[in-house]
């Protein structure tokens, strides 16, 4: 016992010496500005590298529809063509992500852990779309407060206890619920169409047609959109996410030949 005590005191005095020396070293190594800089903030992933473009979501008569294409752009290069940007979270929620793909993968890790733990309780209580939405708000806002945002806009939809839910969260934590939502370019090109044509009692077919109409506009006007899209359908019965498919497009219109012709300042 005495030996042990001895050793312990030795150890702590040794540490004290080290600390003391450490302080000395530090003060001599640093310029004498009178403060020690804090650990420098994360500088990688401060800008997006591989990004996905718009996600669109609408409520319809029996549930919620969310659509996204499968493109992943490396800067402005259409680098990846089969990125799945729609994922199911639990039994009643789907999220679609635009923005940095790797950050979305990280978010899905958080959510998979969350839903696994929730499932492990096995007590009949489950996380619905509202809970997942609020959780994501907290995650996104927390990251941005650390000046290390998750560079995504997330569209989230689901049905629980017969209640339809559709919302979004942005990379800085802005969040809201709506009957129709869109991220990225969709905000400018799809939302106006939704405002004109969306109604409460859209059938499934009408809903899909509306989403495809908007996607066609995005295909024509948003250079980072890719003609390979998936549609997720969430109803009280469950979640189905379609296989990727392409839309029929027509590029031979006169106006497409030289889109800037006649515009002031163009040649």
């Amino acid at each position: 016992m005495a030996m042990f005590m001895q050793q312990q005191t030795d150890d702590s005095s040794f540490k004290k010496n080290m600390l003391f020396r450490g302080q000395q070293d530090q003060s001599s190594a640093l310029p004498s500005v009178g403060f020690v800089p804090a650990k420098s903030p994360t500088t990688h992933t401060q800008y997006p590298y591989v990004t996905g473009s718009s996600v669109l979501g609408i409520k319809y008569k029996d549930g919620v529809l969310i659509a996204a294409d499968c493109g992943g752009s490396y800067g402005s290069t259409l680098r990846y063509k089969s990125v799945e940007r729609l994922k199911a979270v639990g039994k009643s929620t789907v999220i679609g992500a635009s923005g940095e793909i790797s950050d979305f993968q990280q978010i899905m890790r958080y959510l998979d852990e969350l839903t696994l733990k929730d499932k492990m309780w096995d007590d009949g209580n489950t996380l619905g779309p509202k809970e997942v939405h609020n959780y994501l708000c907290r995650v996104m806002y927390n990251h941005r407060n650390k000046f290390d945002p998750l560079w995504n806009t997330l569209i989230l939809g689901g049905v629980k206890n017969g209640v339809k839910y559709l919302g979004m969260v942005s990379m800085i934590g802005v969040h809201f619920e709506e009957n129709h939502v869109a991220s990225g370019f969709g905000n400018h090109l799809a939302r106006p169409i939704f405002r004109d044509e969306w109604k409460e009692d859209l059938s499934l077919e009408e809903g899909i047609l509306l989403l495809e109409k908007c996607f066609r506009v995005l295909l024509y006007r948003d250079r980072s959109a890719v003609n390979k899209l998936q549609v997720a359908n969430i109803t009280a019965e469950g979640i189905t996410i379609s296989k990727p498919y392409a839309l029929r497009t027509e590029w031979e219109y006169k106006a497409f030949q030289n889109p800037t012709q006649g515009v002031e300042g163009s040649w």
Partner: peptide, 12 residues
């Protein structure tokens, strides 16, 4: 309630 905006299940 802060994280999920929903009440904590009693059993948990």
């Amino acid at each position: 309630k802060f994280i999920y905006e929903s009440p904590l299940p009693v059993g948990r």
